[in-house]
Amino acid sequence: MTMTAVTEEIKTEKAAANGPSGKTLWLLAPGVLWMLLFLVLPLAMMLYVSFWTQTTFKIEPTLTLKSWITFFTSDTYLGALWTTVRIWLIVLAATVVVGYPAALFVGLFVKNKTLQTVLLVLCVIPFWTSFLIRVLAWRPMLGKEGAINMILMKIGIISQPIEVLLFSELSVIIGMTQIYCVFMVGPIAFMLGRIDPSIIEAAKDLGAGFWRIFRTIILPLSMPGVVVGAIFVSVMVLGEFATSAALSGRKVNLLGNIIVTQVGSLKWAFAAVAGVVLTILMGAVVAALLRVVDLRKEL
């Protein structure tokens, strides 16, 4: 008799999938309206303004391609585009390399659920400090008289402080890797935690060594986690400007920094062009990653 109930319940659950009813429409309207007005409209405006005419201090709604031509002929802007892509790729690779082994340990090797939770919570706790403070915290670490140089000199590995540690591309990469690698660790550990331990046991019984098990079972099953993590990290790194502003001493200019300085000098049209380029870049990256994995299914 329970079977009866179950099948009938499934049937009633499959409610008719027709258009949103009146009540649903009212529930959705505020949220959708909010997003259209304050998210879609601003983005559309950015695209529109990128074709306006820029004079020294203001913009006029006369359509022109001038800002676009300036952007793609200027070494500064193209350099920023290239720097953005380079930093993004390096940080992405670094978060995978740094994060994967930790995720492997937490997700697969720690069998004790409590310890697993404690480790994951430990990874999240730094988020309770302001993002900007976490970025700033790297200055006393990496500086010429910073903690790292001091320790290295104390134990006699170096005699002169390493100056390239701070206010360089390296410091930006180190900072971003530390801040964003948790977004890589989380999804990978989640995926690894879902692997049925009996599969690995079975492979062991068949005489497979660790590397073989890793290559044939663990790595493929954790790939969706890597991709989801890559989406998080990419979206955040591509939109960055604060870390480079704080740790590069103006040496590293990302597209985000270009937008900030252009807005600062009221060059709205140029800022808009940089914004559109950044949007396209990000859209392409996310679309490519989403082709690999269905985000809605994995969450």
């Binding site: 079977m3 009866t4 109930a5 099948t7 009938e8 319940e9 049937k11 009633t12």
Partner: peptide, 18 residues
Amino acid sequence: GPSGSGKTTLLRVIAGFE
């Protein structure tokens, strides 16, 4: 009614849930 005969649906229609 046997399973799938629509008994639960009938009750839910009478109650006004459907």
